[in-house]
Design a protein around this nucleic acid. Structure first.
Length: 452
DNA sequence: AAAAAAT
């Protein structure tokens, strides 16, 4: 941050107009990030297409959003700008950001065109003047096929997380690009430059392409503390629960490999009274929106998610990310860990491994140029103690059963009447251990996660 | 093999 300070200019120097500056001020955004300094003038200049290589999204949305808002022609009622994102959550986030940037330019209309919600209001809304559309590819293709949207006067096309879109959403993307005029300008944001991206640049972008690179050292990994811990399969959940208990009051994201694993882990966290929610692509959009909203607002502390949440999601004060399963690709690791340590903050990225996966960690180090520090695993005794604390917390958080009659409760109270609190705790604990047949407390776990 | 995206 400090290293880059000299090159940072105020937004006015970058050519951002007064209404937008006022909006930024109201949002307490005072200084442009490095990527914004490099990107905004090029976009405003209106000459070249842009390819931005940036690993994590510090300020990406504003880097294209601000200049594109400024370039909207209010007199023209057709769709002038199209922004594509790979997930609905990211699309919604970009839409919300643009809306917040445009509070002082209410005449600019922005539409969010993502799937999972009723298509009818979207079709109706598009009949009115719409200047900017933020979309996920599937729903947009649907609207194009229904002739509900016209992109024939499009001036700007933004592809966010373009590497993900060319790999997973290629077919839809090709259809969309075929439908937009060749004269439009393209802004492409990507973490990596796989062959598919190079091809896209070659085939679909103009000859004048400016490539912008964020300084990976300062932007990509700054502030993230990468750690790993090796566990036996049987102790994996206990080690996690111990970690989470030490992070009480902080916010984090736990990534799992599959939807079923997300469901199962979220259920286990819920049973153990952690404030958490599950997020993956097989939940209804209503539930996805609710969980995302609760996490954003801080009503839940822990988000358990598939790679759906790996890219672009920007939530304040996420102080740790956990890889409960090793990510499939190096890219995925960068994206997942990039959910923490945002906007200059610090964060921990902890990867939980089994013995046979330890070799992979050195591959990640080599490929990504990072060093994993060993996380000091709690010893057996403190894990045991933590299990006891979880058990107690669970009892503490259990709501009294209203069905039990006052009369009956009174009778039970008489039995315990002469006991001190300490004696009562001793008895409950001993009783619990006798019942479970265990020598020490174990966290309660579900047999199965819901299948999807 | 799994994840995302259209109903």
């Amino acid at each position: 941050m400090l290293k880059n300070y000299a090159m940072l200019k105020p937004f006015s120097d970058l050519g951002i107009n007064n209404p937008l500056q006022q909006s930024l001020k109201a949002l307490h955004i005072t200084e442009p990030t490095a990527i914004q300094v490099k990107t905004i003038p090029v976009v405003l200049n209106q000459k070249e297409d842009v390819v931005v290589l940036a690993k994590t999204g510090t300020g990406k949305t504003a880097a294209f959003g601000l200049p594109l808002l400024q370039l909207i022609d209010i007199e023209n009622n057709e769709v002038q700008t199209l922004i594509l994102a790979p997930t609905r959550e990211l699309g919604q986030q970009i839409y919300n950001n643009l809306v917040s940037f445009s509070t002082n330019t209410p005449e600019i209309t922005i539409a969010s065109i993502c799937g999972g919600t009723s298509i009818k209001p979207q079709i109706a809304g598009l009949k009115d003047a719409t200047h900017i559309v933020v979309a996920t590819p599937g729903r947009l293709v649907d609207l194009i096929k229904r002739d509900a949207i016209s992109l024939k006067n499009l001036k700007y096309l933004v592809l966010d997380e373009a590497d993900e879109m060319v790999s997973a959403l290629k077919e839809d993307l090709d259809l969309i690009i075929k439908d937009v005029p060749k004269t439009r300008r393209t802004l492409l944001f990507t973490a990596t430059m796989p062959g598919a991206i190079k091809q896209l640049v070659q085939n679909y972008m103009s000859k004048k392409v400016v490539q912008i690179e964020a300084d990976m050292e300062t932007v990509g990994h700054q502030g993230i503390d990468h750690q790993y811990v090796v566990v036996e399969p049987i102790e994996k959940l206990e080690v996690l629960l111990h970690f989470l208990n030490s992070k009480e009051g902080e916010h984090g994201i736990i990534f799992c490999k599959t939807k079923a694993a997300v469901n199962k882990l979220a259920k286990n966290l819920a049973i153990n009274k952690f404030s958490s929610g599950a997020l993956h692509g097989s939940l209804t959009q209503g539930i996805r929106d609710r969980i995302m909203g609760q996490f954003r607002e801080g009503f839940i502390d822990i988000l358990v998610a598939t790679d759906l949440a790996a890219r672009g999601i920007d939530v304040k004060d996420v102080s740790y990310v956990i890889n409960y399963h090793l990510p499939d690709t190096y890219d995925a690791y960068v994206h997942r860990s990039g959910r923490t340590a945002r906007a200059g903050a610090k964060g921990l990225s902890l990867t939980i491994l089994q013995q046979e996966e330890v070799v992979d960690i050195s591959d990640f180090e080599k490929e990504l140029g990072i060093t994993f520090k060993p996380f000091k695993k709690a010893d057996a005794q403190s894990i045991e103690e933590n299990n006891g604390l979880l058990w107690a917390k669970k009892i503490f958080k259990t709501k009294p059963n209203r069905e039990v009659s006052e009369d009956f409760k009174a009778k039970i109270k008489t039995i315990f009447h002469h006991l001190t609190k300490e004696e009562l705790v001793d008895k409950i604990l001993a009783n619990y251990l006798a019942q479970t047949g265990a020598e020490t407390l174990k966290p309660e776990i579900t047999k199965k996660g819901k299948r999807h």
